[in-house]
Amino acid sequence: MRLLIVEDDVLIRKTVEMKFRKEGFEVVVAIDGKDGMEKFETTDPDIVLTDIMLPYISGLEIVRAIKSRPNKSIPVIVFSTMGQEAMVEEAYRLGADEFVKKPFSLAELAIRVKRLTKS
């Protein structure tokens, strides 16, 4: 099971990466929205975890691009901090499957990922 993490915060990115590697996932990481879209195109992930606020390409644009693909349904979980309710609503409108508020519990995130990937 391949998981793509798109997160510009180094500490969050590395923490989430280590958690899911321990859970047995093949993890691909991207440091910003542009890198995230490139890695999405080249790695064919089974699930995507993305921050909403990213340099170059926003997490909302990533959700829109992924969910507009015909014939393939890839779950997307978005991260956001407090005070971004309008962006969270937009992410759901664009097709995001889950929302996790920062700071978040790694255990809760793992449960949500496993539920969406049935792994």
Rank of each mutant, 00 (worst) to 15 (best):
A91N: 04
L94G: 09
N71H: 10
R112W: 07
F104W: 03
T43G: 10
L106D: 00
F25P: 00
I66F: 01
D32N: 12
G33Q: 07
V88M: 10
K14S: 11
I111L: 15
S119N: 11
R2Y: 09
V76K: 02
D32V: 06
P103R: 07
L106H: 00
R2F: 06
V63S: 11
I66L: 08
G83I: 04
G83N: 06
M18H: 08
P55T: 11
R115C: 00
S80D: 10
A110P: 05
A65N: 13
M53Y: 14
R93G: 13
A30R: 09
T15D: 12
I111H: 14
L3C: 09
V76L: 10
F20W: 06
L116W: 08
D8V: 07
S73N: 12
R13A: 05
D51G: 04
L60H: 08
E108F: 02
I74A: 01
V88I: 15
I66G: 09
A86K: 11
D44I: 07
K72Y: 01
R115A: 08
A65L: 15
E23G: 02
E61V: 02
S119M: 15
V88D: 07
K14R: 13
L116T: 02
E17M: 06
V78G: 04
L116D: 05
Q84F: 13
V113K: 02
F79S: 00
G95L: 10
I66Q: 08
M37W: 05
V16G: 05
